[in-house]
Nucleic acid binder design. Structure first.
Length: 337
DNA sequence: GAGGCGTGGAC
DNA sequence: TGTCCAAGCCT
């Protein structure tokens, strides 16, 4: 694997060349968090933005929450951004501005699960750690033709990954396994002819590499319906800040009512007004449900009383840091208007 | 353990 | 215009 990595490692902004000293732990950590459930191509522009604007722990720890959340907008899984900031502040205040080198100590920081703690310990600090992500699970499941389905097989896969992890160059080994999974040992149509492990692979020998890993069936995704409220006043639209936890937590948003099995109409409108339901549908797929949204619009005069939220200039909505769902609603509004 | 938690790309 | 799923974490 290490020979293969030396010849075929992907060149990535957060990565040192194979065999060279490891890169800045801050950059390793930031990239690992951004890469959670997110593909490399989506991460690269965000990584460049973040490292330019906040080049180290001290800078990130001192950042405004709203700026970080806006910079993360569009990348998804916003709890990552909240945990990123929380971890940077712990590192700055309790660890002298440096990440702990020890996997167990890393594991206690916000947003550090089993994978990220192991990956940072191995890649940034050269410690032997068993790094198991979705790529490694797939490679190992095929290598050993493990018939037990995920997620139950996690512990066994981890044991098997441990059994092939070397003491030397653990960071390069981990990245080699992940590169192999991302480019050769892919979920569908793996390129076994190019694989350095082909001769040792049980699934390859059986002729059915894409049958692994075996997975349990997923539940169907329900559809929910909701209304986006577009409240306009003097060239501005009302935006709100979503509650700090839960779906799209902490993000700027258009006001919405409840999301239910049937269209809720103007229930949950931010103010009593002469709402018009528009003939425009916003479709957005989340991990565990699909949302079909409708627009409701209203315009206020200048003498309205206090309204919860901020009046955001319509021409500058692109700078509001809206999650994709609400950006879609804005696009739908532009097509209706 | 199982479910909540985004988004976009591949086919 | 459907399915799968990607360098997971948290409760």
């Amino acid at each position: 694997m290490l020979d293969w990595y030396d010849a075929h490692a992907r060149v990535l902004p957060w990565r040192a060349a194979p065999g060279l000293p490891p890169p800045d732990p801050y950059r390793v950590w930031l990239s690992e968090v951004m890469l959670q459930q997110t593909q490399v191509a989506a991460v690269i522009p965000y990584f460049e933005t973040f490292t330019t604007r906040w080049p180290d722990f001290a800078a990130l720890a001192a950042a405004d929450d709203a700026d970080v959340m806006s910079a993360w907008a569009g990348l998804g899984y916003y709890a990552r951004a909240r945990n990123l900031l929380a971890a940077a502040r712990v590192v700055a205040s309790a660890h002298g501005g440096r990440l702990p080198r020890d996997e167990a100590a890393l594991r206690t920081l916000p947003g550090f699960g089993a994978y990220t703690a192991a990956a940072v310990a191995a890649i940034a600090f050269g410690q032997r750690a068993v790094v198991v992500d979705g790529n490694v699970e797939r490679v190992v499941a095929r290598l050993f033709a493990l018939a037990e389905p995920l997620p139950g097989a996690r512990a066994k896969l981890r044991y098997l990954a441990d059994s092939i992890t070397p003491d030397a160059r653990p960071g390069d080994f981990a990245q080699a396994m992940m590169d192999l999974g991302a480019t050769i040992c892919t979920p569908r149509s793996p390129k076994c002819l190019l694989c350095p492990l082909a001769n040792q692979c049980d699934a390859r020998r059986a002729g059915t590499p894409d049958a692994y890993p075996v997975k349990a069936k997923k539940a169907a995704r329900p559809v929910r319906h909701g209304t986006f409220f577009w409240l306009e006043r003097e060239g501005a639209v009302l935006l709100v800040r979503r509650p700090p936890c839960g779906l799209l937590g902490g993000m700027r948003a258009l006001p919405t009512g409840p999301w239910e099995a049937v269209p809720p109409g103007i229930d949950g409108a931010p103010v009593a007004a002469d709402w018009t339901l528009r003939n425009a549908t916003i479709r957005h797929v989340f991990t565990h449900f699909e949302l079909h949204g409708t627009l409701a619009t209203a315009t206020l005069g200048r003498h309205i009383g206090a309204v919860e939220g901020e009046w955001w200039p319509i021409e500058r909505l692109g700078e509001a840091g809206l999650p994709r769902l609400f950006a879609k609603a804005v696009e739908a509004m532009e097509s209706v208007a």
